[in-house]
Amino acid sequence: MTDVLVVENLTRKFRTPAGEVTALKDVSFRIPRGEIVALSGRSGSGKTTLLNCVSGLDLPSSGTVMLDGQSVTGLDEAARTRMRRDSIAFIFQTFGLLPHLTIAENVGLPLRLRREHPELREERVAHLLDLVGLARRGGSHPDELSGGQQQRVAIARALANSPRLLIADEPTGQLDAATGAAIMDLIRAAVHAESATALIATHDNSVQDSADRILHIADGALRGRVGRGAHAMRP
């Protein structure tokens, strides 16, 4: 199976008034296409720093990140920005929807920024809203939806540009347990339907249980790999 994401010997150090801090320590892992990997660890363990380095929002002090055979760490800032626009999608616990836009407009925003043809954009938006169970709410605004529904919109928007990698940072953090479990089921279904790959940082046990694998990070280093599903033994 083809590896979509390859992280090798990733280290990130920061200089602070108190001295140098190592946020990531020689982190290496691979994620094949179609797999959902949960990243667990306490606050301050390095989860967000790792997500930032994987997505090109931050650069490591050493090590490499490869996305579908292309070096993320070797790109200049403009190229990393294009990669995030075209190949990487983000889901956050705060939803990040624009309140003055309708649901359909929020989902279609990435396509508008990419200057997709209006007819194709509308078709894609309709498909994604149907995928997340909100086909009849395209004309609504975010404040008219529940938290779970807003996260569904955020998932649809993240998938708009058919990303190769979906990165989620605590996507169920603001939701109750039942809604969070439903959102994770939706993420799994959406990832499979769109032939994507997902890396999800989470404290939520239900999210971890639904993943194919769990990578546990502590003090900036991977401390263990817990298998789930068909790829349980994959390093």
Rank of each mutant, 00 (worst) to 15 (best):
S62C: 12
A78R: 14
A104S: 15
I103F: 02
L145A: 09
V191Y: 11
F95T: 04
L59F: 08
S43A: 09
Q70A: 14
D169C: 04
T73Q: 09
S162V: 12
G74L: 02
R82E: 15
A196C: 15
R157C: 03
R213P: 12
E119L: 14
I217G: 01
R225V: 14
G69C: 07
A221T: 11
L129Y: 10
S162E: 14
E144A: 14
H141K: 14
A230W: 01
E8L: 10
I183S: 11
L186C: 07
A156D: 07
G139A: 13
P118W: 07
M184W: 07
E77M: 06
D169E: 05
S55R: 02
P235G: 05
T11C: 00
S45P: 09
A177G: 12
R124Y: 03
D185F: 10
L101P: 13
M1A: 13
P99F: 02
F92V: 12
L111D: 12
P17Y: 01
I155F: 00
I167C: 05
V207S: 11
F95Y: 15
D185C: 11
L186R: 05
T94S: 14
P32E: 09
L129K: 07
L50Y: 10
V72F: 10
C53L: 06
D3R: 12
E105H: 06
P110K: 00
